[in-house]
Design a protein around this nucleic acid. Structure first.
Lengths: 346, 346
DNA sequence: TTGAAAGCGCTAACAA
DNA sequence: TTGTTAGCGCTTTCAA
């Protein structure tokens, strides 16, 4: 087979020549900039189509925008992120922006590197999902590039935030369980190892929401928290710990569905039935919570909405970097399934 | 608060000035290029550290590499991709390359746009996971940018492929079930709607592997396939269809775990028990297959290895675009759990 | 409304 | 081994 044509990319110069206008004109048409006649636009668009021209983001980035937005996802395996992402892309619908995901950020150092790499690539803006960097560092970043922080209960004059109301979410679970007649309701939290931003992270807010809700029901004395991690293993060991108390809890509220799965394992292993002997609730309403074999009561975050709002705010900030910052807080809902029921009669 | 410094980025010129060398020297040091003395490297590295310099990928892309690799993921929600991705990043470990994911490719058109956008961003190479584009289009792409195709059983002189041996995977399931004493083993396949590349897609290969294995056991007459989709809904309707046969299957092999979940729903709804009345097996060994509540027998693809090999091949091709293409085929393993057992005695 | 020309930050010929 | 310099493809003043 003959070697194909040397693959030189069509440039703005080719388009200009083909359309018999200047490169400036082509550039203006591409960006819908001011000062182009309909006739010229027509010519240019035809030439672009004829030649199959596509602008080089690299070249654009050197002077103007790259039309690229970055989304940092802490853990691609978390089944909650796809929803956020769908919201983001939906919100970007007809714009010229392309979303790219930067994956895998275990810890503060890796996160910083990932963010740097997005800045290095001249992205127009970034959405950071549940970042663990210290607040000051996030503000530094936001000073360099338009930034929206998702899932951290922070407030800044320089970046926007979108978060689920985790206080309300935890209260939904506690209220539900109390309504069923439970009093000894235990909680499994995720203990953050990075010390810098503890109180802003969703997991800490959920635990705090649990405490507040318990107190609201006069159940201060029943507050019982196992500090583990939001993993199946964490849920398992946490539940084992709770099941060894002198007075057994009648319900366990895990701060994440995946941890709730571990709870279910431990409860079954202890020879107890769910929800007959003990009720279990999770958080995130992940795909598997809906499986009939699992059927886990869980808190549904408005993932799609979170993503959509984050993208909208980011575009607004790119358009006007001095506009006042916004904090969007969305309301979760409770999805009741078969792992919660009234406590066993004594 | 005072407006922060105008945020001009440190450039290679600043570094050169600070180190009292030429920009070429800095560039060479950055790229570990030939012709730099240890003394100069030392000076440059010190200046880079002093100034906190980071190269602009956009500017680099205009002449050389961007040190960015793109991974197209067809469905970010598929719990199988995180593993591939981990393999990719592990393989890239100490290199300067950064991985970016391009999400959301429903159908051929969206996929083409996504790939274009990665090319427009001057990425150095791309990994396409289970692309649906016609073979000719993929070859066209691979002529423009180093490309590795994952999960499609294609062979090309111009791109490399990494895939799991789906024929063998399907055989593992059939062999296992036959070994347990099953004869009426049905299959639920994913029927591709895009017509252009049917026979290369993993789902079709799995169905073919099922047929071959059944024939290998002399069970030609028992071959029974429901053509649905790899979704919970698809598994559910597929199983309902199979459960309406005059002669009930004693085992159902779903081509994907998520479809197997739908099968379990339908089986339970029909008042049958698993694995007492009917055995169920899936494919992909997803996270939830291991949940004790599910405990699904499933085929484990070497996801991590797939990703690692794909990244390695991509780097090799970037280094030498004329090298011969490679086809890596990896062997799956069977993870036996509690949804498969001998058929009921008649 | 249109176009000429000067960069953006970097790499790669080529000279020294 | 080191440095000079001409672009890469685009945007953006600034004149015409």
């Amino acid at each position: 087979m003959a070697r194909p044509t040397p693959q030189r990319r069509v440039t703005i110069i080719d388009v200009a020549r083909h359309a018999e206008v200047s490169t400036t004109a082509v550039s203006k048409v591409l960006r819908n900039a001011y000062g182009t006649s309909p006739a010229m636009r027509e010519k240019v668009h035809r030439a672009i189509a004829d030649l199959g021209y596509r602008p080089s983001a690299a070249a654009r980035g050197l002077r103007g925008q790259t039309y690229t937005l970055g989304v940092m996802v802490p853990d691609i395996a978390n089944p909650f992120f796809p929803e956020i992402l769908n919201g983001v892309t939906a919100s970007l619908g007809n714009t010229d922006y392309q979303v790219l995901l930067a994956p895998g950020c275990a810890g503060e150092h890796a996160e910083a590197r990932t963010i740097e790499s997005m800045i290095d690539r001249s992205m127009d803006g970034i959405i950071l999902i549940a970042p663990v960097s210290p607040r000051a560092h996030l503000e530094h970043i936001a000073g360099i590039i338009p930034t929206v922080i998702v899932g951290r209960h922070a407030r800044s004059t320089i970046f926007d935030t979108v978060a689920d109301d985790d206080i309300a979410g935890a209260a939904l679970v506690v209220d539900h369980l109390v309504g069923l007649g439970h009093r000894r309701i235990a909680h499994i939290e995720h203990l953050e190892t990075e010390p810098s931003c503890i109180e802003e992270m969703p997991n800490m807010i959920r635990a705090e929401g649990y405490r507040l809700a318990m107190r609201g029901h006069g159940l201060d004395a029943e507050i019982d928290i196992a500090s583990k991690t939001y993993t199946r293993e964490g849920g398992y060991t946490g539940a084992r710990e709770l099941l060894n108390r002198k007075r057994l809890p009648t319900a366990i509220f895990a701060g994440a569905d995946i941890a709730a799965m571990g709870v279910l394992d431990a409860v079954a292993e202890a020879g107890l039935s769910v929800p007959g002997d003990i009720s279990v609730a999770g958080y995130d309403n992940t795909t598997f919570a809906a499986f009939s074999q699992v059927s886990l009561t869980s808190v549904d975050q408005a993932g799609w909405q979170i993503g959509a709002d984050a993208a909208r705010l980011l575009l607004e900030r790119i358009a006007d970097r001095t506009r006042r910052s916004a904090q969007v807080k969305l309301s979760p809902t409770l999805v009741v399934r078969n792992t919660t029921a009234p406590p066993p009669a004594r």
